[in-house]
């Protein structure tokens, strides 16, 4: 199966071809799994393969989806169906700084809504969007389990606790 990334989105890089070392890493991982001829069993390996692929490439564009489908002997539609269902997977590029505002219940009652609104206003982004320079992406997430620090904001792996709208500019400036 060949990759049709170029036909669909001319501006998008074909990550599989551009980064042979990343491709190799993913290929080796999938080959280490117990792939047989039982389609149903192979399908059971799909989600973990996509986790690995997103770890490696950052997101899951069409060419990566095709690559995974090919290796697991699945249809592209089955792969895409899974990616579009689960919120953890994304087929859009993400920013260098991934800002996640926790909107779990504990954070919500302690004012996460105002914090999220301020991020939206300050960055001029909607939830799920990435800035044009690919520096920031803004997302909400449900509960990181640090409810005692509510409201919580995560920037990549760093956790900010007891965040107020006023702290938003400082958090953004720290990313620079």
């Amino acid at each position: 199966m060949s990759c049709h990334c170029d036909e669909q989105k001319p501006q998008e890089l074909n990550l599989i071809e551009e980064f042979p070392d990343k491709r190799k890493k993913l290929e080796e991982y999938i080959q280490s799994l117990d792939i047989g001829n039982n389609r149903e069993k192979n399908r059971g390996l799909l989600i973990q393969s996509l986790h690995k692929a997103q770890d490696i490439f950052g997101y899951l564009p069409l060419c990566v989806q095709l690559f995974v489908a090919d290796k697991l002997k699945l249809h592209l539609s089955e792969v895409y169906g899974v990616i579009s269902f689960y919120s953890y997977f994304t087929d859009k590029p993400v920013g260098k700084y991934k800002i996640h505002v926790c909107t779990g219940t504990a954070c919500f009652v302690k004012g996460a809504g105002a914090v999220l609104d301020e991020f939206k206003r300050y960055l001029n982004l909607e939830v799920g969007e990435t800035s044009a320079d690919r520096k920031f992406s803004l997302n909400s997430l449900r509960c990181v389990g640090a409810c005692s620090l509510a409201p919580v904001v995560m920037v990549n792996d760093k956790v900010y606790g007891k965040v107020t709208a006023k702290m938003v500019p400082d958090i953004i400036n720290e990313c620079a």
């Binding site: 689960y86 919120s87 449900r142």
Partner: peptide
């Protein structure tokens, strides 16, 4: 182990 992917 099997991993979820963010679906309640």
């Amino acid at each position: 182990l099997k991993y979820g992917a963010g679906a309640f």
